[in-house]
Nucleic acid binder design. Structure first.
Lengths: 252, 252
DNA sequence: CGGACTCTTGATTGCAGTCAACTAAAGTGG
DNA sequence: CCACTTTAGTTGACTGCAATCAAGAGTCCG
């Protein structure tokens, strides 16, 4: 059983079996976080990168007035920081939304691996690009989309991200977060999330109950939410070669 | 006269004179864009990274319904994409807000330079980190701050970013964008930007006229906007060494 | 079985959008 | 250099989306 990390990275580069073994070998140091507990808190000085293996987490920030904003959701296979970046201190938290199993990766090890192996380098840079564009689309949602569209768009995004790591199929997926947490991600109140959910249900698009999202008409939902999956960079042609392969790195 | 790029990167690493000469040598290929024209449009396949040398630009996306969201402002010294990332195609635009002078950088050249020079590597990763956290804070603003706070927060951020490259002092700075564009960045209508501006003026914090922002009481504005500059990662201790220096790279 | 979340719905409030008219500034061309 | 046009800024009136407040129902869990 390949790890979700490897499954996702396959979207960004052609990986050989040896590449995949190398990548899986990174997850030596396994850790566990309980639901609603911080993996990293504001002010912490992280010593390693966090790779989510199982469960859901998020990057979130609590404001002075007690309001919370979820900046990003992290799903199995997600690296909470791009591969070469280790912040000297955190100014927000990484919080487990469910029980989470994660690995701690050493950035120097990752970067050394990237330096020696251009496929892995390309995959890691691809992952960093995809993570940035996720943020961009989040800004677009919060800035210019209405509540119902935001919610629908998020569902489409989560579905594609989960499908890539084998955690969603055509019928739906497990959505283990509260409506309050959806609101914290979408800049909405829990009450309004509930009402928007009702609207999506009454339109016959989805049904959320018992922490599972049933997709009743995915295509209609995508159209309604103006969802264009290009920003996820899935299944795309690999990032073009000329500019990508480091001058000295030659793959055999 | 050192370039704004170098001035900014000094915030992220100790750069020797030779490092700075190397970095300035990157900006060989100079280009020019007129105000309101795209540097890259949606669908383009960029062949190089864009470094803003003079003028203001932005990353923006036009939605199907004609609404626009500005995802990020780019100021002199800003790299529009992190140093190792060259998207295979653009799914949004990079647009000049004023007349812009920019350089085209080859990612392989940048990465080769980073590989040989650990100070430069650290500076470039630092820049990528700072750019990501800018995005995070943008999400927080759009999700959880009120209009007036958003505007005030943006002014504080722009002031610090411009000050680092020598384009702002205590009295204010040139703000060469329309109120409509401020609204497109903050998820507000131009009318509401105007009203919020009036409120900030009536509170005695700032005064915006003829494309210049006068800072009348910067500290009060920062307090009012709950502005915590930590996310800009300026003047911080350099990113810590142990995890950062690549195993084989030794600086002399 | 009790207590704590979470979800749901209704009533009310308020922040920000839209529409519209007018002023000010900045270009443009004769 | 001055009419004319266009773009940007300003203000008022009204509307509407989403927040808040509140209460009840449903679930989960010890």
């Amino acid at each position: 059983m390949t790890s979700p990390f490897v499954r996702k990275l396959r979207q960004g580069a052609q990986l050989s079996t040896e590449d995949e073994i190398l990548l899986m070998g990174l997850s030596r140091s396994l850790h566990y976080a309980e639901a609603r507990h911080d993996i990293y808190s504001e002010g912490d000085r992280p010593g390693s990168l966090t790779l989510i293996l199982k469960g859901w987490a998020c990057r979130d920030k609590i404001l002075e007035n007690g309001q919370r904003q979820i900046i990003a959701f992290f799903l199995p296979g997600d690296l909470c920081e791009p591969f070469g970046i280790l912040p000297p201190f955190m100014n927000h938290s990484i919080t487990a939304l469910t029980p989470v199993t994660y690995a701690r990766l050493r950035p120097d090890e990752l970067r050394a691996m990237a330096q020696e192996n251009s496929s892995i380098e390309q995959a890691l840079w691809w992952d960093a690009l995809a993570a940035m564009e996720l943020q961009h689309e989040h800004v677009v949602s919060l800035g210019r989309r209405q509540a119902v569209e935001r919610l629908g768009h998020l569902f489409c995004e989560l579905h594609m991200r989960l499908a890539v790591v084998g955690l969603a199929d055509r019928t739906g997926f497990s959505l283990p977060v509260t409506q309050q947490e959806l609101g914290d991600a979408l800049g909405l109140s829990a009450v309004h999330v509930n009402r928007s959910l009702r609207e999506l249900r009454s339109l016959g698009f989805v049904n959320l109950r018992h922490r599972r999202l049933d997709l009743l008409d995915l295509n209609a939902l995508k159209e309604f939410s103006l969802f264009d999956p290009a920003y996820l960079r899935f299944n795309g042609q690999p990032l073009h070669d000329g500019a990508w392969s480091a001058p000295s790195a030659v793959e055999r």
